[in-house]
């Protein structure tokens, strides 16, 4: 890992709930300006790992470090100053104005009795402007599209001022164009030096955005390292338990695909699927 202290680091981490271990011996490090993608099948424990890294549930073994500090020593506000969170969707039942939602990013730096003032409002407006959505500030989130809401949540993470951002499938419920827009915003965060921990179900997105990838299989990590090296067809086939084919598109982007329904329904072997590697 070198001498640089990672923004987020897990060492020998075991996660799970109710005493049942889902993942063991998880080690990962997120650095400034890098995008680290977590990939794995449903139910493998990605969300549990995520919640443990955010300090929302205790680890069952090992430790998490934020900027070199053990997570267990940090207060809720201190964690929030180091690691922001972008949820998959917004679940509040109320019609918040977008700007008010972004303002909430200030909570970690405000005292318990304080309200956001001029400085916090300027910060929130700057975060919206950075993403090119300053016109959405006064709009109620109930009037926004899913993609716009996601951008507002990213703006909130920027306003929170943390050096690292954790995103849990931020594009899962978005249409094609919004997926690309949010992807660009994620790259923009990294370009500003923010480390992004990205949980995704889309291998193409992981290969496109991710500097590094961590493949998570039941029990622990299957492989970790630079995305293009780690995400081989053979490993993806093992990870998702279906034959996966990997193609390099013109321009160098990677495209992963499973067996097509229109092709011969006979068994497709992993070896055949791996022919392009």
């Amino acid at each position: 890992m070198g001498r640089v202290t990672p923004l987020v680091e897990a060492r020998g981490l075991a996660v799970g709930h109710g005493g049942r271990v889902l993942l063991e011996e998880v080690g990962l490090g997120l650095h400034r300006g890098r995008i680290l993608c977590l990939l794995g099948p449903n139910g493998v424990g990605k969300t549990t790992l995520f919640r443990t890294l955010l300090g929302l549930m205790p680890p069952l073994g090992g430790a998490v470090f934020l900027g070199g500090h053990p997570l267990s020593d940090l207060s809720r506000a201190e964690i929030a100053q180091r690691l922001a969170y972008v949820p998959q969707t917004l679940t509040t039942p109320f019609a918040w104005r977008a700007l008010d939602l972004v303002l909430m990013g200030a909570a970690a730096r405000l005292g318990p009795f304080a309200r956001p003032g001029r400085a916090e409002i300027a910060r929130a407006e700057a975060a919206l402007a950075l993403l090119g959505i300053d016109d959405l500030g006064p709009v109620e989130i109930t009037r926004l599209s899913g993609g716009q809401r996601q951008m507002v949540l990213i703006a909130r993470a920027i306003a929170q001022g943390a050096e690292a951002v954790a995103m849990d499938e931020p594009t899962a419920s978005l249409d094609f164009a919004n997926r690309i827009r949010v992807g660009k915003a994620i790259q923009g965060l990294a370009a500003r030096g923010i480390g992004v921990l990205l949980c995704t179900h889309d291998p193409d997105q992981a290969a496109d955005l991710g500097d590094e990838a961590v493949l998570i299989e039941p029990g622990g990590i299957l492989a970790a390292g630079p995305a293009a090296e780690v995400m081989t067809a053979a490993r993806m086939t093992r990870l998702y338990d279906i034959p996966v084919r990997r193609d390099a598109l013109p321009g160098g982007r990677l495209h992963f695909s499973g067996p097509s329904g229109r092709e011969d329904q006979g068994p497709v072997t992993g070896a055949a699927a791996g022919q392009n590697v």
């Binding site: 955010l54 929302l56 970690a108 730096r109 929170q160």
Partner: peptide
């Protein structure tokens, strides 16, 4: 969860 990740 969301409130806690915001520092509350």
């Amino acid at each position: 969860d969301e409130a806690r990740t915001l520092g509350v």
